[in-house]
């Protein structure tokens, strides 16, 4: 087939048609997102829930105030540490388990079916259940198990050193299945020829993995990174249900701080600044990743 022919068929039958087709979806979403613009407007006001009749424009005051506070930079750092660790762990764990699961053996279907269960429990509930499992004394089942190995008791969510790690474990538990599923899918659609060629050349397994499998899986990696990175930058449910940002502020991510500002302290203006910055972060990362993705599709 020639490119010319392709282009002819790619051209929509009616110039407006593609817009028309996207319109309903776009309208539905924009309808919901009008409030978003209102939210951005609030970042420039002193909007406090308890004085909602009296919203005053205060320019950049909220931004200046927040940027000069250490809480903000700390929250930003924690958000990044959390999101990056989660994505890296889920990618590597996801790929390893997917490789193990992509070869047929008795029971593989069952395992693949069981795989997805952690994702099905609402994250906020999983987090509550994990909190019971991670109780700092031997009342918690994990510490109880560890006590047989002579370890602990570890305070898990109650210690500033281990709280973030505990949250990462919970997040990995919930969302690894997402990465595993997509990797299994990717592994199954790998083309066969390059592998045969490599086999003929007598390449080692590790070499094949590094030079062949990984590059071929790159789009999967980008896809997982895209969705997991955005969602973990916005992490809320599992921290809300467990530490609420504590101990001290060891797990106070941007979303959690904004929750405190809005729902507990009523400072909508300040809260929206945190959220707006969070949105910008997600936006920048997603833009970068989708570019990467498009480049890969062009190949």
């Amino acid at each position: 087939m020639t490119n010319q022919l392709n282009n002819k068929f790619d051209r929509p039958p009616q110039r407006g048609l593609p817009y028309l087709l996207s319109l309903p979806a776009l309208l539905a979403l924009i309808g919901i997102l009008y409030p978003f613009i209102l939210g951005v407007y609030y970042t420039f006001t002193n909007y406090n829930l308890t004085t909602s009749d009296n919203i005053k424009w205060i320019g950049l005051k909220n931004y200046i105030e927040i940027f000069s506070e250490t809480e903000f930079w700390k929250a930003l750092g924690i958000t990044f540490i959390f999101a990056l660790s989660v994505v890296i762990i889920e990618l590597s764990l996801g790929l390893s388990v997917a490789i193990l699961l992509s070869h047929p053996f008795p029971g593989v279907q069952l395992l693949r079916a069981l795989l997805i269960i952690p994702m099905m429990i609402p994250p906020i509930v999983s987090a509550l259940m994990w909190k019971v499992i991670l109780l700092p004394t031997n009342q918690g089942v994990l510490n109880y198990f560890l006590s047989f190995l002579g370890i602990g008791p570890i305070a898990w969510l109650g210690d500033s050193g281990t709280a973030l790690i505990s949250l990462i474990i919970i997040d990995v538990w919930i969302y690894s299945p997402f990465a595993i599923l997509i990797f299994i899918a990717g592994l199954q659609s790998l083309p066969k020829e390059p592998y045969e060629a490599a086999r003929v050349d007598g390449a080692s397994g590790w070499f094949v993995f590094r030079k062949l499998t990984l590059p071929l899986l790159a789009p999967n990696i980008v896809l997982i990174t895209l969705f997991r990175l955005i969602d973990s930058l916005k992490v809320f449910d599992i921290i809300y249900a467990t530490t609420k940002g504590g101990p001290a502020s060891a797990t106070a991510t941007l979303h959690i701080v904004s929750y405190f500002e809005a729902f507990r302290w009523n400072n909508i203006g300040r809260s929206m600044v945190y959220l707006f910055i969070l949105w910008i972060l997600c936006f920048v990362f997603a833009k970068f990743l989708t570019k990467l993705w498009n480049r890969m599709l062009m190949r």
């Binding site: 700092p136 009342q139 898990w156």
Partner: peptide
């Protein structure tokens, strides 16, 4: 006191006491 005090909600404390800890 128990380790991990900053994670104790009222109900975890209460349940700890109920369980005799």
């Amino acid at each position: 006191g128990p380790p991990g005090w900053p994670s104790y909600t009222w109900y975890e404390g209460k349940e700890g006491f109920l369980a005799g800890n």
